[in-house]
Write a protein that binds this DNA or RNA. Structure first.
Lengths: 215, 215
DNA sequence: TTTTCATCTATTGTCGACAGTAGACAATGT
DNA sequence: ACATTGTCTACTGTCGACAATAGATGAAAA
């Protein structure tokens, strides 16, 4: 499906630039510069910047400009914790809707993640990881919760794409996610919620630690 | 502190208009109309509309316009549930930071809420309720979580200001909130989380029910 | 009458220009 | 040397005009 307005395309463009690492944290994203680069006026660019600001990827200071967020170790940890709380709850109430087939698909996704990690296929790995977790949180049907979770997802990509190779071994990635699927299979909401919270808190702590060490 | 840009003032203006009931759900908010009313150009107005859209108060359809959200019964319930999940978690981890003085203040706020409810001081009641709950969720220091919770808070005001007189008796308001404070005093995270989730789920269900009955 | 299609209108999308501000830098006075 | 002040510049903030679109209206054809 084709995008209709410039705003969306610009937002996507900026997001990709960030993911690719072409923009550094704390760096100002100048409207005029983008305007010249993309050959469009500043109006749609401003809207795109606003959008990304409200997602939490960019930071806006009135009369000064828009900057790529520079997340502190605490910010990172908090983002992951919050993600765990939301997704944990979502999964804990929506597991009855998951069929046996869904469960099997989740299991095979775990294996595939390991495979992709071994082949260093970062982009595909992140994409698959997203799909896995999206299954967990989107089935609950709570739009509000889904919206927030997706915002956090975008945010965590900023860091994950940078740090991921140092976080887990391919086999660990597999096991960590299988642990979640097993929790879901158990059918115990408390267990599901706890397991998913741990999943995220663990990663959050790891990344925060790396950040503190200035990696 | 004085606001610096038009955008913020416009956003506030629109929000107040909505709260006051001068704009009805599903109604289009026209840029041109606001532009003429406020005697400013459309640029800052668009930005304000974008902002409120990202909060979830307004709904935007490309090339058509921006409309006041018309929440379904499910939307309402989901918003309250999500709020409960976030605030419940926040309070469950931040209770150690609350002093004896804080607890006492919370108790007296419960009494004051009852008083305001009896006097039909809706605006002050809502404001105090906000302050009460803000204490619970903001101390945790998790900016991400606080941001989301505040977004939900704005959203729920839309409905609360409309439905609140039919929800609880003054005495019930008092008791419901005291129940939360007691849970906090217990120092049991699980209890705190459960109690706050119930608090919101209960209200969400009530409002959703009223909505379904077409009140 | 009903359907189709062109036209019209109201509203949003985009533009280029100008105004206003924050921060850098130079000039001045002590 | 140092603080203060003034200027200059590179941005963002705001503006008014125009382009493009969706939906309404009305005319033409069956």
């Amino acid at each position: 499906m084709k995008k209709i307005t410039y705003k969306d395309r610009v937002a996507e463009f900026i997001y990709k630039e960030i993911i690719k690492g072409n923009i550094k944290p704390k760096e100002q994203i100048k409207e005029t510069h983008l305007s010249e680069t993309l050959n469009i006026s500043r109006a749609p660019i401003r809207e795109a910047l606003n959008e990304l600001t409200s997602v939490g990827i960019l930071e806006y200071r009135p009369h000064i400009g828009t900057f790529l967020t520079d997340l502190t170790a605490d910010d990172i940890l908090n983002a992951y914790i919050t993600r765990g709380v939301l997704e944990g709850f979502a999964a804990s109430i929506s597991f009855p809707k998951l069929t046996k087939g869904d469960i099997n698909r989740l299991y095979s996704m775990c294996d595939k993640m390991e495979m992709l990690a071994e082949k260093n296929e970062n982009v595909k790995l992140i994409y698959l990881g997203d799909k896995f977790h999206e299954k967990l949180f989107s089935i609950c049907g709570n739009k509000e919760l889904v919206k927030f979770t997706k915002m956090l997802s975008m945010k965590s990509h900023l860091m994950f794409s940078k740090y991921w190779p140092k976080l887990y071994l391919p086999k660990q990635i597999n096991e960590r996610h299988k642990k979640i699927v097993k929790a879901i299979e158990s059918g115990n909401p408390k267990t599901i919620e706890r397991e998913i919270r741990n999943h995220y808190t663990e990663t959050g702590k790891k990344i925060a630690k790396l950040k503190k060490e200035g990696v």
